[in-house]
Amino acid sequence: MEFLPIKRALLSVTDKSGLPELARFLSAAGVELVSTGGTRKALLDAGLSVTSVSDVTGFPEIMGGRVKTLHPAIHGGILADKDNPDHLATIEKHGIAAFDLVVVNLYAFGKALEKGLRLPEMIEQIDIGGPTLLRASAKNFHSILVVPDPAFYPEVMDALAQNGMQAPLPLRRKTAAATFRATSRYDEAIAAYLAKA
């Protein structure tokens, strides 16, 4: 689709700069906000209404946060092709609501490297859910807008404001490409660290 209406967003970020402004913009336009632990707390502290991922999945965050978004109620809502009747029938059958926007940035592995943490501590700085959310969203850019970095927030808000809260396809493709570049760099940093550890 050329223009994607933005009605439901998943936000889960390590870098919270610009997040309240983006979330207020979305909320003012009637977008439902869904979020994870720390990000949800920041949004609640900013006075916003936010649905917990655990309420969507019906399952608590476990293993110290290692498992929270890895669930069909999240990924089905991200990976559904909105132009594919079979996909739409599947999510309806299973009671899954589609997402239109995913705002995710990753654990700061580079900053952890600078601290010289021990190997077990470094392992905990390897983000799993974040890259999974990003890659799933970027793959499905035809049906979802992925935002991998706060640097995109102004452009995204401007585009949505100009297009009646609909994300144009060129923007979705642009941020998808940036997402794959970001996850590639992230994985390369981890691979380089493990090769030397």
Rank of each mutant, 00 (worst) to 15 (best):
L22S: 06
L33F: 07
Y107L: 14
V13Q: 02
D83L: 14
A98N: 09
A97S: 11
F25Q: 09
E121P: 00
I96N: 10
L10W: 01
L106Q: 12
M122L: 00
V104R: 10
V56C: 06
A23Q: 04
K68E: 03
F3S: 09
L33M: 07
I96Q: 08
A97V: 10
T39M: 03
V56N: 02
I96K: 07
V103I: 09
S54K: 03
P5F: 06
H75N: 04
V67N: 05
P120A: 15
F99D: 09
R8C: 08
D86A: 15
T14V: 10
L11S: 06
Y107P: 02
A46W: 06
K111A: 15
I123L: 14
A29Q: 14
L10A: 05
G116P: 00
K111F: 08
R8F: 06
R24N: 13
P60E: 00
I62R: 03
L117D: 01
T51R: 12
V13Y: 01
T90A: 13
L101G: 11
L101Q: 11
S12C: 11
K16A: 11
V104K: 12
P120W: 11
D86K: 12
G38M: 03
L106I: 05
D45T: 02
E32H: 08
G37C: 11
V31K: 11
V53N: 10
L117E: 01
A73D: 15
L22C: 04
A89Q: 12
P5E: 08
L22W: 03
I6V: 15
V103Y: 08
G77Y: 00
F99N: 07
E114V: 01
A29F: 07
T69P: 02
L79I: 12
L119I: 04
R66P: 00
G76E: 10
E114A: 15
F109V: 04
R40A: 14
L113S: 04
V13C: 03
D83G: 14
I96H: 12
I91E: 08
M122K: 00
I74D: 04
S35K: 03
L43A: 02
A9C: 10
L101K: 09
A89R: 11
P60L: 00
P60R: 00
D81L: 13
H94Y: 15
L26I: 09
S12L: 11
L119Q: 04
D55N: 06
S12K: 07
